[in-house]
Amino acid sequence: MTLLLAGGSFLSFNTGFAIWILISMVVFLFVMTKYAVPPIMKSLAEREQNIKESLESAEQAIAKAEKISEDNKKALREAEVKAQQIRKEALDEAELLRTERINKAKEDAAHIIEQAKASIEQEKKQALMELRSEVAKLAVRSASIIIDSELDVEKNNKLVDNFLSDLPKN
């Protein structure tokens, strides 16, 4: 069937030719729709999804890393503050301890000095006593030597003792 001009002209609509084209188009379209295009569409969609997800997860990771670094900084600051505090406390404590020690040492020293003084006093007293008895003995002996054995030892001792007790204590 020709529409406008008898065969061969470009303005004709050729039914047989149209049937061919329709059949070929149906075949081509079937092949394209069924086999060729879907894997491409799917791959592209998958890739786009992948890229989208990757970008999103990267953003999340960055946010997370930023948060972590922020946390770290905060922790560091806190640690520094705490360290400062601890140092200060330690210093204070050390100061306290030192003064305490010094005081104690001073006390101890005073105590020792006191004891030493007391023992010196004691020694001195004893020494005096010993000295006194020694002196008495010496005096008696010397007196006995001098005056000889006629003299009554007992009376003499009493005499010396009296003399000695009259002596000043120191």
Partner: peptide
């Protein structure tokens, strides 16, 4: 030609080139 190059491309996408 259109179908041919589409198939050519599809085989590449199936292998993962362009997908992964």
């Amino acid at each position: 030609g259109a179908v041919f190059i589409t198939f050519l491309a599809a085989s590449r996408y199936r292998k993962g080139v362009g997908r992964d």
